[in-house]
Structures are given as C-alpha cells and as structure tokens.
Write a protein that binds this DNA or RNA. Structure first.
Length: 436
RNA sequence: GUGACCGUAGCUCAGUUGGUUAGAGCGCCAGGUUGUGGCCCUGGAGGUCGAGGGUUCAAAUCCCUUCGGUCACCCCA
C-alpha cells in the first residue's frame, strides 16, 4: 500500500494506540479520552459548564480581541477569505467564548457564567516539541465577576487539574499587570528607561519599545534581562485599588495553600490581560515549558465591541504538553481496552450462531470481539490473545448440539462449559474490574 | 521566518573505499497441531532506500534541489 497523502505539517493523527514511529510520540486515543475525562471531572467539581464554540471564527474578532501586535495575529493565523467574509481557524478560545457570552446576552441570566472548553486550536508556527499547528487546549472562563475570588478560584482549578493527575510540584508564576489607568503610566516609564539603551536591545525588542514595551519584559536574552534588572517595576505604578486586588488574590491563594512565585517580568502574549496574570511551568518540556496560563481580561469585551466592560478571568492549557508531562513523569496512561470476550466459531453454523450471540452479549453490556475475516480457529485464538481478551467463547458442532459453549479464561488457560442461556451472566460476573 | 541534525520493510536499525537479485531483529501471515492463543521450530508476504534532478559503465552510498521529521531561536499551550 503506497502512501499518497500525508497529514499536514504540524498536525497529527491520534490512533487507537500510541505511535512509536516518532521521537515525540503521540499517545493513543484511550489516553486522550482519559485525560479529557479527568479534566471534565475537575471542571464539574468546580461547577463549570461546558461551552462549545465553532472552530471557525470571524478574523476581526480574533485580531481585535487578542491584539494586532501579538505574534499570533501578526504571523500565526490560518486565515482565509470567502466572498466578503474573513475566516480564521481559532488560535485560542477566550475571545470566542466572550463573543458567545455577548452574543447570547449571557449577562442577562444573572450571576456569574463559569464556562469550560476542550478542543483544537490552530497556529501557523513551525512545529517543535510540544508545539503543533493544530493543538488542543482546555480551559475555563469565569465571566461577570470583578471579585479576586474569581481569580483565585480559576488558579485553584487549574492547579487541581494537574493535581488530579498526580502533578503537584509545578511552578506557578504570578504577577499583576495593573489596570487601564496604571498600565499606560508604567508603559511610559518603561519606555523612558529603555530608550537611552536602545542600542543594547535586539531588533524585535527595539520595535516593541515603540509598539508594546511591556512585551520586552519576558525576553530571554541575557543582556536584555540584565538591563531590565534596573527597570521600573509595574507594581510601583498601580493604584491602591489594583494593589489591594493583587494582595487579595495572593491572600486567597495562601488561604488555599497554593504556593506561587511572584514574577514582576511575567507578561503574557495576549493584549487583553489586566490585573492578574499567571503561568504554570514545568522543567520537563524543553523550550515549551509553559503548561498553561491565564489571567484577568476585563478589557476584552470592549475590545470586541461591547459597550460595557465585562469583568472576566480564565486560563488556557495545552493538552499535548500535559500528555508530555505525564509521559515524562512516567505516569500511567491507558492503552487499548481488552475485550471481555472473544467469540471463536468453528464451521458455518457456529459462525452464524456466534454472530448473533455477539449482539446479545453486547446488548447485555459486554465488550465483545469476534473474527470478521473467516479465519481458522487457530487464527481466531491468536487474535483473541493479541487483543488480550479475558475469555474466549468457543463454539463448534458439539457445543451447538449440547447448547453449551466452551469458555476459556485466557490468562490461566482454564476452560469450562457454560450453557448458552447462562453465557451473558457468566461473563458479566467474571468481567475484569473497570480500569481506572 | 532562521539554524542544526535526521529520512533504508509496519517498528527499531545494519548496509564495508559507489559494484550483481538491499539485510537483521521484532511485528504480520501460514504451517508444524485433524477443534484451542502465549513458548518453540519452519516457511512466506512486505521496500520505486522520502521525492526530483545530476555525476558515473554502475548510486541506498557522491553533489544539488525539494518535501517531511526532530530540536533550538522567535513566540507560545
């Protein structure tokens, strides 16, 4: 079978079993299902409700929402035009969720909307470890609350997702970006400080000095970091109210025993953040060490056209990176599930009986496999063994005559006769304990 | 967008200074067992050597281009 087409660069297929053909293996679909189910479970415990928005969004929503000057919008979007509409494959989900919130007037339902999502996003970056062009994010958005408890709850939820996988030692970095008033003041001060040293900045940083100086703060360039060590701190520019808000977020995290590191240089890549910003990172992921991050984005609703500001906070995290982290830690991921029974038939009559009986057993709730290729008994047994079936149910002429099947426990090799009528009951009773 | 490394059976790899029909292990299929898997033995299928071009009497091997992968820069999940 010669291959004619391949998946698009930076995308991958999720097969039933893990792909070992790559240096950065993609776990199989059972592992993905498991990870998603754990995420859903934690979301449920926080009383988060799922929202599913389209993969395709209007380009202006994304461009205005996350900022024209961000790398994502400037060079990483899969966007196209059709007729007079501009479409984009969503590069993140926060702006779409806010769009849905405004469009459906969810604010009119009273209370705070607590929404979560799991799904694919797209960015046209060059792929590397833990970074793909189609990747998968999960996250939550708490919309409608200006209260620092919303921030702390969001962070607690994110940490509890990792904790649910047994990961409790991640680094949580925390910062405040101030509000609408303090940010411009700080921006000017930073520009004033850096301008005389422009010759020591990289080309991109020089550009950002004019357009988006805060982004220079998270540079990895050693020389620039040294320069920034003496730079003015944002915390010194925020007003009392913002400072009190930040202090309260920290106090709430302390209350929940969630350790964090304050990092005055933490600024996130998207323009819509104000106040709280946070990021969770691991040492196991190479250059892509951020597992997830988020913050408060009270300005987003107005950016995308709402007349009123809607206070909101949320986080987003990468599923590929979570999977990478789980693998790096040697945490177990489920593989292909084993059938409760594999039905083995000898002869035409038995084949028909087995085909019908498979359905009966399946309707009784059992995972049942059988041969669909007309293979020899030996081959059927081999297949049952390969699939790690718990039992084989063997039926030929003799069994049909006696109306009882030979039921073989594959691991021990023990075999007993079970009356046809008692088959489902026997298999249900001896079913493998449901895997975690 | 930039740089480094890497592309030989489904997988992991070998392939001598370019030299006949490109190999191994695992996996797959079948037989040894006429109604019983795993272990063992035997046999078999499976490769346009990523693709295209060039050098040469001769290319998996040398050169160029291209595609893909991996990692890093950038940025981010």
């Amino acid at each position: 079978m010669n291959v004619t087409y391949q998946n698009i660069k930076g995308t991958f297929d999720i097969l039933p079993d893990a792909q070992d053909g790559s240096d950065a293996p993609i776990p199989g679909s059972p592992a993905w299902q498991y990870v998603e189910s754990v995420i859903r479970d934690v979301m449920a415990r926080y009383n988060m409700l799922e929202i599913r928005t389209p993969i395709l969004e209007p380009t202006p929503l994304i461009a205005r929402g996350i900022g024209q000057l961000t790398d994502i919008v400037a060079k990483e979007m899969f966007a196209f035009e059709r007729g007079d509409t501009q479409y984009v494959l969503r590069p993140e989900v926060t702006a779409p969720v806010m769009r849905a919130y405004l469009q459906h007037r969810l604010d009119q339902r009273g209370g705070v909307q607590k929404l979560f999502y799991i799904g694919p996003c797209f960015r046209a970056e060059s792929p590397q470890k833990g970074r793909y062009r189609q990747f998968h994010q999960f996250g939550c958005e708490v919309i409608g609350s200006p209260d620092p408890r919303a921030d702390a709850e969001t962070i607690a939820l994110m940490m509890d997702v990792y904790a649910a996988f047994g990961i409790t030692d991640l680094r949580l970095r925390l910062n405040t970006l101030g509000d609408e008033q303090s940010r411009p003041r700080y921006r000017e001060a930073l520009q004033a400080y850096l301008a005389p040293h422009a010759d020591r900045l990289s080309e991109t940083s020089r550009q950002r000095l004019r357009t988006n100086p805060l982004r220079i703060l998270d540079t990895k360039d050693e020389r620039e970091r040294a320069l920034l060590a003496g730079a003015p701190r944002l915390i010194d520019f925020v007003d009392d109210e913002s400072r009190a808000f930040y202090e309260e977020v920290k106090a709430l995290l302390d209350l929940l025993d969630i350790p964090y590191e304050e990092d005055p240089f933490l600024v996130r890549g998207l323009d819509y953040y104000t106040h709280t910003a946070f990021e969770v990172e691991s040492d196991n992921l190479g250059a892509q060490r951020a597992l997830g991050g988020g913050g408060r984005y009270d300005l987003l609703s107005r950016e995308i056209g709402s007349k009123q500001a809607v206070p909101a906070v949320g986080f987003a995290a990468g599923i590929e990176r979570l999977l990478l982290e789980l693998t790096a830690r040697g945490l177990p991921l489920p593989g292909i599930p084993a059938p409760d029974a594999f039905l083995v038939a000898l002869g035409d009559e038995a084949t028909r009986w087995v085909f019908a009986t498979a359905r009966t057993l399946r309707r009784a709730g059992l995972r049942v496999a059988l041969d669909l290729k007309g293979r020899s008994m030996k081959a059927q047994m081999r297949e049952a063994n390969r699939q790690r079936a718990r039992y084989t149910v063997i039926v030929g002429k003799d069994e049909l005559a006696a109306r009882q099947a030979q039921v073989k426990h594959m691991e021990s090799g023990e075999q007993v006769a079970v009356a046809f009528d008692a088959l489902a009951g026997f298999l249900l009773e001896h079913r493998a304990a449901v895997a975690a």
